[in-house]
């Protein structure tokens, strides 16, 4: 079937089988490989992307059912500058192998935007076998204070 996806601000047309997940559409058809396939079962979070501004698992989403805009880790940077969460992940060393990182970053962006109270709980849908967890929490906290000081300036 023919579908249209809006990914990172661009409209993309695809002709796909209804079986294709959003994750496989992004990775195998659109060359957007930031989102990773760690399990393909909703059990790891490596495929986390935003649909309509909210983190979802691309591996359990059928591409043909997506109507709202999709944002992946590739779409976070603005004007060539990394998103404050990306910057914080790099500075806090919130990664090792980096395979879970795209998904972690997408969840972390939501954690900062939603001003969540319990960061560790909120970030628990993103497994990290390298176990960068403490640094991931530190990165969220850093990004949050960056945001707060930016908000305060406005």
């Amino acid at each position: 079937m023919d579908i249209t996806l809006e990914v990172n601000g661009e409209t993309r047309h695809l002709s796909i089988d209804p079986r294709v997940t959003l994750l496989d559409a992004l990775r195998e058809r659109l060359g957007i490989t930031g989102p990773k396939k760690g399990c393909d079962r909703g059990q790891c979070g490596a495929c986390t992307v935003h649909v309509d501004g909210r983190p979802v698992l691309a591996c359990l989403t059928l591409a043909a059912t997506v109507r709202e805009p999709v944002r992946t880790v590739e779409g976070l940077a603005a004007d060539g500058r990394p998103h404050p969460v990306q910057q914080a992940f790099a500075e806090q060393d919130a990664l090792q192998c980096g395979f879970c990182t795209s998904g972690q970053v997408m969840s972390a962006v939501a954690a900062v935007e939603q001003e969540v109270a319990d960061v560790r709980e909120f970030m628990s849908g993103n497994l990290c076998r390298c176990a960068a967890y403490p640094n991931i929490v530190a990165a969220v906290e850093q990004a949050r204070s960056t945001k707060e000081s930016a908000d305060a300036r406005v």
């Binding site: 930031g34 880790v73 590739e74 990394p82 790099a90 060393d93």
Partner: peptide, 12 residues
């Protein structure tokens, strides 16, 4: 910082 951190955090 880890030299590949920018690549890993941007999906590149």
């Amino acid at each position: 910082m880890r030299t590949d951190a920018p690549l890993k955090t941007s999906g590149a």
